[in-house]
Design a protein around this nucleic acid. Sequence first.
RNA 1: GGGCGCAUAGCUCAGGGGGAGAGCGCUUCCUUGACACGGAAGAGGGCGGAGGUUCAAAUCCUCCUGCGCCCACCA
Length: 763
Amino acid sequence: MSELPKVYDPHEVEDRLYRFWEEGGYFDAGPDPAAVPFTIVMPPPNITGALHLGHGLDETLQDIVVRWRRMQGFQALWIPGTDHAGIATQNVVERELAKQGLSRLDLGREGFIARVWEWREQYGNRIVAQLKRLGCSCDWGRIRFTMDPGLSRAVRRVFVDLFDEGLIYRGNRIINWCPRCGTAIADVELDHSDHDGELVEFRYPLEGAAGDADEGDAISVATTRLETMLGDVAIAVNPSDERYTALVGRHAIHPFEQRRLPIVADEAVDPSFGSGAVKVTPAHDQTDFEIAERHGLEKINIFDTRARVNEHGGRFAGMDRYDAREAVRSALDEMGLIVGTTPHRYAIARCDRCKTIVEPWLSEQWFVRMEPLARPAIEAVESGKTRFYPERWTKYYLNWMNQIRDWCISRQLWWGHRIPVFYCDVCGEAWAALEDPEHCCSCGAAKPRQDPDVLDTWFSSQLWPFSTLGWPEQTPDLDYFYPTSVLVTGYEIIHLWVARMIMAGLHFMGDVPFEWVFVHGIVRDAQGRKMSKSLGNVVDPLDLMDRYGTDALRFMLAEHATGQDIFLHEEWTAGARNFANKLWNASRFVLMNLGDTPRSNEPPALDDLSPADRWILSRLASTIAEVTANLEAFEISLAARSLYSFVWNEYCDWYLEVAKLALREEGSRSQEVARQVLRNVLESILRLLHPFMPFITDEIWQRMPGGAGESAEPSIMRAPWPSPAPQLIDPRAEEDFDRVREVVSALRRFRADHHVESGAKMR
RNA sequence: GGGCGCAUAGCUCAGGGGGAGAGCGCUUCCUUGACACGGAAGAGGGCGGAGGUUCAAAUCCUCCUGCGCCCACCA
């Protein structure tokens, strides 16, 4: 065993071991009535992406939990997969095309989709390779993609069911329109940020007023989006606002279109803001839309799909929205209608995919009625059927759910699940169908037309916990592994994804999709900024693995998985690498001194243990209990830290040094006992550490001399999780040894202070 | 306008009613037969502020201050 090198070399080990595990079927799981299932579905990475540290953390945590449960004897299944990520993927492929001077229109719908499938062949596999590099112990035979045939059937089935139940409807409503992506997006897909802009106040002349409009015969309104006045159809005031009582019922005149704008009274207006009068633009503002509904007002859409002013904008038609803003300002100014401009800070909404400022836009879209779905999902969390860890996210979830709004699910994209609604041009029927129909379901006319839009990506991901197990087929897998045990994810997608999975799971499976939601923080740069390509502060996990090894990266992440955001520092990974090396060398020492001591999962008999033996065995038992309890509580960092200090500060710093004395007594009983304890504790350490550092622990495990017994497993993956053995916890042994440590430390201090020649070594 | 999180050693962070901790950095020493990706001995902290609860508060409660994040239709 002395051929172990002095420094652990991860690269030599990792590929080889991963292949060994995969080929040996160590990750595979299936229904087994004799075992208790433990299931995790992997939050599917987008096929656009390469592995980043966010994945690194998320996958590491999942792998820790799965490997630990597997060792505990659960039938542990971890299902991997990838997400088609509709809008994100369409964007990257379009960008690729643009490099060749092409747009998706050049390829046509079919051609473009074929092109995206090529992309997914290439990059879907890249992410899988990287997950394997991280050591993920997924059952790869079960890998799924959100647009697989089976999952597509699930999507279609869900759409049709919700449609037939009246929970999906089509409506002409204000949605968020991304003028760059050319599609509607949902409220949760927005990024809000504060913006220092200005509030422009201007006057609408009153009808019947004499001459040019001054104070008395005009009404003053304010806006941050001046160009939207092109779509104004009314002016609203609060009914209780006495300043305007006399004006309600009268009209103002639109200065460009000569349109008559009724002055209406509506509760939605806050009399204390600005002039207390609000311009009403029903096609470009949610509140205004609602006012218009209440007062039967016309809705004038002034933008085309690129947010350029359309024909309703009169002389401003064709202008970009921001050019139009300035043009309208000067036009109003020339007419003497601008009252003034004040600096104003307000929130701006951007598309979370491309960061373009979105435009509230009136359009015909598909929606899911959320309230009936939300109610049971609220109940399920309130009653504890699904629980969040850390607990504070429960409130975060409930707040959102209690004020949930209908979900806009249609996207004006090509990449995604096509909406399975068909229209008959003859009789006007519209229906949802599981199979593409040849004829109208109502009048029998041929060739019904399919809705051109696709579904929001999250419409398919919300089904992930059961679609991956075979639903809508009633499979044995579904029966055995659903509900899953825990969902591990970052808090940024609790609303976007977790909430919707809970709703879908309850509605279609009649049960929650997971018992626990384990929420972790976001990995940021050292200054706490989000890592992004544009900031150039992205730390590549592959680079860290190259330089320090996968185990080091994983252990570093585990040490910092406290639930808070992680502000990553380069040195941390080096520290974890040092720890791996420490373990390597301690093992090297043990292997050199083991003789023919057999492997045994049982701690050595108690009779002739030395005080140091009893101490380390007691400390080990405590550590086992602690690590197990912390894993159960999702306290991954505490588990990692207690292992770190046990291994380094107790086993290596003290026990190994003390054991050297006994080991020198060749052929003695104390040598034999020391060897047994040394080996037993090391093997327990390896097993405890395996979920965190799978490679190095198995590498050492497999190099331990075989020896007898049922426990001689070819891989540590089949070794049982150490049992706590509370009978070995011995406070007195620990106190005694602590006293020894104090005495020795004091002696050392004395020698250091008095510069005593250390001819006589401490050990 | 609500809600949440964080403020602990020079730096980065754990901890969480009864001894103030780790990693990195720093000082001094040690190339000793596991490991210099190492070892030994150190220096360094009124645990953001003010009240309160308690025999006991860094830890629980209230308020405040400073950062950070999320939600919300104030034009």
